[in-house]
C-alpha cells in the first residue's frame, strides 16, 4: 500500500468511526464565511441545522437557504454556493470544509459532526477570487487548460475513420488521468499555487497539478502528441512544472485519486529530454 493509499484508508476509518457514533435527531452548528461580493469584508455567520440521516453539506445549505436565520436569531440572506451534479463528478461544489478542501456534496454530516452541537465550518476556496459567500471564480483553472493545449488536434469533426488502436493498459492509464473534473482541490491544497486576481499574470503563475496531468494525458494520445513540443515548452516556462515544490498535497486531496505526482514526475522527465534534444538538434 502506498503512503497516499494508507492516508486515504486512515481517513476513511476516521469517518467510519464518526458515522458509528453519530447521534440521531441532533442539530449541528454550521459556521459559514459570508462575503457579499469581491472587495467586500467577510464575516462568520453560524446556523443551527437539524440533521437528518444521510444529510450532507449541500442538504444543510439548502435548509439554511430556506431558513436564513442565524443562531442569534438574526434574519440574513440565503448563503450562495456553487453546485451541480451532487454526485462528485462535476466538481462544482468544492469548498473548504473544516479546514480541508473537498466536494460538499459527498461530505456527510455524520462523518464530520457526529454529536449534538458539533461544528462544521465552511469557507470558500482561498486560491480563487470569491464571487459571493462560498462561490469562487475558477476561470484561471480553465485558462491553464488552454496554456497546455489540453485537446487532441483533430482535422475536423467529419467522418474520417476510427482513431488509433490502443492497448487496454494504455487506455486505463489515460482513463485515470481523464477523470479530472477540474474541481481545483489540488490547487487549493498546493503551497505553490496562490490566488492571482490579475488575469494578465495567469500565464506566468504556477499552472498547477491538474494541468500538468492533462498535458501528460494528451501527450499520451497518438494524435495528441502532435502538440507535445508546445505543451512541453509551456511546462518548461515560468509557472510550469518547474515551479512545483513537491509538497505532494495535490495527490492526497484529489477526490478522483488521479496520480498527480506521477504526472509531475513524468512531465519533469519529458521536459528534461525535450530540453536536451532541443539543445542538440533544435533550430531555435
Amino acid at each position: 500500500m502506498s503512503s497516499t493509499e494508507a492516508l486515504r484508508e486512515h481517513e476513511a476509518q476516521e469517518r467510519k468511526a464518526n458515522r458509528a457514533r453519530a447521534k440521531a435527531g441532533r442539530s449541528v452548528i454550521f459556521k459559514i464565511i459570508r462575503c457579499d461580493g469581491p472587495g467586500k469584508p467577510s464575516r462568520w455567520e453560524s446556523f443551527k441545522v437539524p440533521v437528518e440521516p444521510g444529510s450532507n453539506v449541500i442538504s444543510c445549505l439548502k435548509w439554511i437557504a430556506a431558513n436564513p436565520v442565524t443562531i442569534d436569531g438574526k434574519q440574513t440572506t440565503p448563503p450562495v454556493w456553487d453546485s451541480g451534479c451532487l454526485e462528485e463528478v462535476c466538481g462544482a461544489c468544492t469548498m473548504v470544509i473544516n479546514g480541508k478542501v473537498r466536494q460538499s456534496c459527498s461530505c456527510l454530516i455524520d462523518e464530520y459532526a457526529p454529536l449534538e452541537g458539533d461544528t462544521i465550518t465552511l469557507e470558500p476556496m482561498s486560491k480563487f477570487p470569491v464571487v459571493r459567500d462560498l462561490w469562487v471564480d475558477r476561470a484561471r483553472l480553465f485558462n491553464a487548460l488552454k496554456r497546455v493545449k489540453a485537446w487532441v488536434p483533430i482535422d475536423s469533426t467529419y467522418a474520417q475513420g476510427a482513431g488509433p488502436k490502443e492497448s487496454p493498459e494504455h487506455q486505463q492509464t489515460r482513463y485515470r488521468l481523464s477523470e479530472c473534473m477540474s474541481c481545483g482541490c489540488c490547487l487549493e491544497a498546493c503551497p505553490q499555487y496562490n490566488i492571482e486576481e490579475d488575469e494578465s499574470k495567469w500565464d506566468e503563475s504556477f499552472i498547477g497539478a491538474h494541468a500538468i496531468s492533462q498535458a501528460r494525458l494528451f501527450n499520451e494520445h497518438e494524435t495528441g502528441k502532435r502538440l507535445k513540443g508546445e505543451r512541453l515548452e509551456e511546462l518548461s516556462d515560468k509557472g510550469g512544472v518547474g515551479d512545483c515544490g513537491n509538497a505532494q498535497n495535490c495527490v492526497k486531496v484529489c477526490p478522483k485519486h488521479i496520480p498527480l505526482t506521477e504526472s509531475i514526475g513524468a512531465m519533469g522527465r519529458a521536459t528534461t529530454i525535450h530540453a536536451i534534444a532541443s539543445f542538440f538538434t533544435g533550430k531555435k
Binding site: 485537446w151 487532441v152 483533430i154 469533426t157 476510427a162 482513431g163 487496454p168
Partner: peptide, 23 residues
C-alpha cells in the same frame, strides 16, 4: 458508428479489448 469514430479520434478513452479495439 461515425460518431463513435469521431469521439475516438478526439481521444475519448473507450475501454479496449486485448487487441486494442474498442470494447
Amino acid at each position: 458508428p461515425k460518431i463513435i469514430d469521431l469521439l475516438d479520434r478526439m481521444g475519448v478513452p473507450f475501454n479496449r479489448t486485448h487487441e486494442g479495439f474498442r470494447d
